Amino acid sequence: MGEYISLAVSNSVSKAEWVQAYEETLRFLKIFPLAERRKVNVKGIDTICLIPTAEKEELAWWLGKNAKRIGWTASGDYETMQTADDISLFRDFVQGDLFDQEAGDAMLGAIADCMDYSWEDPRFQKVRTTWGRTTSGKPYHIYLLAIACLLEARLGDKIFIYGDITRSQCLQATELINQYLDEPIQPPSRCVPDRFYERVERLPFSTEEKQKIYASLLLGENADELLIQRLYERGKVDKEYDISDYEDLLRYKPGDTIHP
Rank of each mutant, 00 (worst) to 15 (best):
G2V: 07
L7D: 12
V9M: 12
V13D: 04
K15D: 11
W18P: 01
A21Y: 06
E23P: 08
F28S: 03
L29S: 11
K30D: 13
P33W: 05
A35R: 06
V40I: 15
N41Y: 04
V42K: 14
K43L: 14
G44T: 10
G44L: 10
D46L: 00
T47S: 10
I48F: 07
C49L: 13
I51W: 06
G64S: 13
N66G: 09
N66H: 13
K68L: 01
R69I: 08
R69H: 04
T73C: 07
A74P: 10
S75D: 04
Y78V: 12
E79N: 07
T80W: 05
M81S: 08
Q82K: 15
Q82Y: 15
D85R: 13
D86V: 08
F90Q: 02
F93L: 07
V94C: 12
Q95V: 10
Q95L: 15
F99T: 00
A103R: 14
D105F: 01
L108N: 06
D116M: 14
E120P: 00
D121A: 15
R123L: 14
V127G: 00
W131I: 06
G132N: 03
R133P: 01
T134H: 12
G137L: 13
Y140G: 00
Y143K: 11
L144W: 02
A146T: 01
I147C: 10
A148G: 12
E152Y: 03
E152M: 00
E152I: 04
E152P: 05
A153Y: 07
L155F: 01
D157C: 02
K158I: 11
F160E: 02
D164V: 07
T166F: 11
S168P: 01
Q172F: 03
E175F: 14
E175V: 13
L176R: 11
I177C: 12
N178H: 13
N178W: 15
Q179R: 10
D182Y: 10
I185D: 05
P187W: 06
P187E: 13
C191K: 11
P193H: 00
P193V: 11
E201D: 14
P204I: 12
P204Q: 00
E208R: 01
K210R: 15
Y214M: 15
A215T: 08
S216D: 02
L219H: 02
L219Y: 05
E221A: 07
E221C: 13
N222V: 05
D224M: 05
L226A: 08
L227I: 10
I228Q: 08
E233Q: 14
K236F: 04
K239S: 06
D242G: 01
I243L: 01
D245L: 14
E247A: 15
L249Y: 06
L249R: 00
L249M: 14
R251Q: 11
T257D: 05
I258H: 09
I258D: 03
P260F: 00
P260T: 04
